[in-house]
Structures are given as C-alpha cells and as structure tokens.
Design a binder for these strands. Structure first.
Lengths: 164, 164
DNA sequence: ATTATCGTTTAAAATGTTTTAAACGATAGA
DNA sequence: TCTATCGTTTAAAACATTTTAAACGATAAT
C-alpha cells in the first residue's frame, strides 16, 4: 500500500481509538471496526493481527463482540479455511442500534430501581416520625423527576427511529 | 434515620453506581450526586464522608467535577466554616447538558479527523497505482458516510433542545 | 500569636481492565 | 491415522484508573 494512504489510515485508526476511549468504550474494539470499515475486502484474523499488531486472542474476543453488535459479520471465502470478516458499512445504523439498545436496557434498570425504592419507602410509611415522613415525601418527589426523564428518553428513542 | 429509609436510599445509591459504571462513567461520582439529590438539605464534606464511607480527598475531587457539570453547587450556611453542597434538582437538565456537550465535543473531533484524513488521501492521489486509487475512492466514500452521521447528530441535538 | 478546623493536593496503594502467551479442541489435508 | 492450521479459552502480566492517607496552605477561633 502507498505510504501516505497507510499513514492516513493509521491516523484514522488512532483517532477512532481516542474517540471510543473518551466515551468510556474499549479503544481497541473501535479500532478493529475502523480497520474493517476502511477495507475494500474481508479480512482474516491473521490480516488483522498484522495490521494492528496485537495478539490473535484479543482480536478473536473483540470480533465476537462486534458481531453481537451487528457491526461486523463473518464471510466465507471459497477455498480458504480461515474466517473472514467485513464491517457493516452502514455505520449510522451500527451506531444508532448500539445507542438504542444501551438506552433501552438502562431505562429498564432505572424503572426496576425506582419500583424497588418506592416499595421500601411505602412499606416504611407507618413507622416514620414526622421528620422522616418529610424525607419520604422528598424521596417520592425526586423519584418522580427521574420517571419524567425516563419517559422523555423513551419518547426520544421512538422519535429518533423515524429519522434514522 | 429510619432503618428502612436508609436501606431504600442505599439500594438507590448502589443502583445509580452500577448504572453509571455500565455507561463507562466513574461509579462513585454518580453515587455522590445521588446522595445529594435525595437529601433535603445541603451536605458538608464530612456529612458525605460519613454517608459514603470514603476519603475526604476523594469527595473533594469528585464534587468539583460535579460542579463543572452544573450538577452540584456549593451553598453558604450562616455560622459554619464548612462548605455545603446541594444537587441541582433538575436532573433532566443535568443529564441533557452533559450529553449535549459530550456529543458536541466529539462531533468537533470527528470533523477534524475527517478533514485531516481527506487531506492526506488527496495529497497522495498523484502517486497512486490503479489499485490504490480504488482504495482511496473507498476511503472517501466511507468518510462521506461518517459525515452524514455527523450532520444527523447535529440535527438531533437541535431537535432535542426544543423538547427539553 | 498559636492552635484548630477546613478543603485540596499528591504520591503511593488498591482495584479494575485489557492484553498477551500458551495450551487446547476442532477440523482439514496429507 | 497423523500432522498442520485454524479460532477460542484462560491464567497471568501489563496497564490504567480510582482511592486513600498524609502533608499542606489558608483561614477562623481562641
């Protein structure tokens, strides 16, 4: 490959890694996707080892994670025993799917948390002093705000779906 | 405080920590906000040390981070030498501000990255073989997809602003 | 002026995460 | 059947982040 093209690509890969890290994601997994995303042909595990200079095990592990996200799929190449991988080129969809499922999962968790919290507070109501009743009231009011946010997030997801 | 209320609060704090961690954020900083968010009165550093059982330094450090985000502000209490803190109760705004600034920052970074990448690829154009020209073409096409996503994200932010 | 009480800083310890190297099982090819 | 080539697994090493404890400067109280 032409030197400049490789340099350009390396810069890209580096930036993608930093970007992922700044979001608290694993830097390497993003770089792995980046390599496949820029490739004009499916790549094998060994190709990726060579391109990224990391262990085979690492790639194996993270490729499967990318597959789970629908960001990468394996392709069969006639006459080769190796597995080949290619990136889902619809990066917009890859991103939005990931965000959507992440948000949905968390909305569920928050919902459970609130239910549990409310339940305990309600069950305590009978045994509370006047001051504690005030506190319980504050708890309920603050929980309501969280619930509002939750429903807003749900709405946001359904709106976003129409756009993407 | 009534035992059940404290248990309820502890569960809440625990869940908030897990939630934050699952987003790749610092678990403790979220728990710190949670304690203040549920409190009916401003709390001092020492109050927080007692409630969360962590070092003073840790709280000092993370409170300032929360202040940066506009999630917490310090309040002055007459007759006390201590600093007191209270949570911004508008949790919706705290969240959306944080998300907005995070996304905006990253859009800028991606934009720079693309510009740089494009520049290098273009500068190489003259010295490329036929195959490499094909590759450069693919790079440009893939970059265009990222740019589309970028502009979509910008649009999403401005739409979201009207809702929140 | 001296002491006590604050919040902050920081180097080191504790903890958590990622990466590797090596062993392994599965399967294709000889 | 035996060997070579795959991808996967996993325990340990490398690395990164978080937390602490102790020292510190600033300021209030005595």
């Amino acid at each position: 490959m032409n030197g400049k093209l490789e340099i350009a690509q390396d810069k890209f890969i580096e930036s993608v890694g930093k970007l992922a890290a700044s979001f608290g994601l694993n830097k390497f997994i993003a770089q792995l996707y980046a390599v496949l995303y820029l490739s004009n042909k499916p790549l094998s595990l060994d190709d990726l080892v060579e391109r990224l200079v990391v262990s085979k095990g690492n790639i194996s592990l993270n490729i499967r994670e990318l597959e789970k996200w629908g960001a990468v799929k394996s392709v069969w190449i006639k006459g080769s025993r190796k597995d080949y991988y290619e990136a889902n080129p619809d990066i917009k969809k890859v991103f939005s799917n990931k965000i959507k499922s992440a948000v949905e999962k968390r909305i569920g968790e928050v919902s459970n948390m609130i239910t549990e919290f409310k339940g305990i507070v309600d069950s305590a109501e009978g045994e509370l002093t006047a001051d504690e009743k005030k506190m319980a009231k504050i708890f309920r009011e603050r929980l309501k705000r969280i619930e509002e946010m939750e429903s807003l997030a749900s709405k946001a997801i359904s709106i976003a779906e129409k756009f993407i």
